[in-house]
Design a protein around this nucleic acid. Sequence first.
RNA 1: GUCCCGUUCGUCUAGAGGCCUAGGACACCGGGUUUUCAUCCCGGCAACAGGGGUUCGACUCCCCUACGGGAUGCCA
Length: 463
Amino acid sequence: MKPIVTRFAPSPTGALHIGGLRTALFNYVYAKQNNGKFLIRIEDTDTERSTKEFEKNILDNLTSIGLQPDEDPINQSERNAIYLKAAEKIFQSGNAYWCDCSQDELEEMRREQTAAGKKPMYDGRSRNLGLERSNKTVLRLATPENGEIIVNDLIRGEIKFNNNELDDLILLRSDGSPTYHLCNVVDDYEQKVTTVIRGEDHISNTPRQIHIQNALGYPELEYAHLPLVLGTDKKRLSKRNAATSLEEYRDKGYLDSAILNSLARLGWSQGENEVFYLDDLIKDFNIKDVQKAGAIFDITKLDWLNSQHLSKLNLDEFKDLLEPFLNNMGININDHENVDLLIDSLRTSDNNLSGIATQLFPYYKDIKDYDYDAIKKFLSNNNILHDLKEILINLEDWNEESINHLLTKYQHENNLKVPQVNQPIRIALTGKTKSPGLGLTLVIFGKKLAIKRIEELIKICDK
RNA sequence: GUCCCGUUCGUCUAGAGGCCUAGGACACCGGGUUUUCAUCCCGGCAACAGGGGUUCGACUCCCCUACGGGAUGCCA
């Protein structure tokens, strides 16, 4: 059996899209689990919309997330001669003809067909005219008029198309440039692709491409048409309904492994497992188990998956990944006397790294804004804060246990409720009423800074 | 319009004719742990698009309808 070769063929008309990333992932996983190759082809024949920046973005992102191609990517824009040769071959074999219908004429034809309740399609009027090539002619494939094409889809089974539903598609434009279908078919052959895994929006392109393959005498390919990734409005995921670029998710602090995990779970599942890494997918993924219906991309599931992946990191790994997010806020992660304790205590404070970095801010930098509602609630008078400051100043042994002991003692002696003692300190230290256990929080801050923060809040309350 | 693909809890899904009183996960709601928050634990809510067949029996097979998506380009 031939080794499996898959490919991801993006158009560089935008940054790497997470829908595209999912297609790439399935291609990569399928190739790897079959000891095959995963290739990339840049479909940049649309010179109007394609850019080198997007191309670089797509390639860099795929590589950095772990979906490296097994060969250097190829660009369609550089392979014109190959396509022209293939077109010539089809023409020579009598499976293509020149057509000089103008755009206006075609439009008129479609209008009439639609008006007559028929499917608008090219009627093959130039097919037997034996026209010569000119700067006004396009090369059209002579599609068989009878019979049918059966696409055997790994996910959907057999899909039948009647040849009479298909019109004679254009292979070469009047400016001599090759069209998408031709390039696609030729490249899949040239790259020795065996399996085409792509979005279901390509299903109806498939029989057309098979006709081109047949005209060229190419072998059959294996197909798998993936269900689309949808936005919450059930429309195809796009900038209109969600963040679409991989970078946006990375910038928010979602882990690569969590992003890949959530993308894989869109349309595929295995038993009752939810957490998967790339290696797990290579081991357990089965293309035949992929769902047929489109799947809505739910950010809350990604949130949860991210927290799962975050929790599996050891502290050093966690710190390394968190660091850039702190840097973005002008914080040096090591600029704290109890870094490890601090990070370890706050690592579950949010489900993404940028959120955690935000939580960490008051532990590194001066408090930007206090929760004034909380101040109103817990500090209607600040006698308690004064008392606590004195008590803490006099505490020699600054550890979690002794701090907790002192605070509890103060609470009992003054007949106060727990929050009446604790929340003022929390607000003083972090600006808000949330923090790890109070003794622990005070230890993290250290005596000097803790006292300083309490004094600052006393000043604010005195105003 | 025509052709193609699809339709199980709000969301992702399990389900290959009896194992289904339709399972899991996220979200949500409630409870517990935590002096607060998060984590964690326990519990709850919630779905087979509709209608016909086939069958002793249908979420599962067939047909129709509805709805959604795609194609119908000298875009990819």
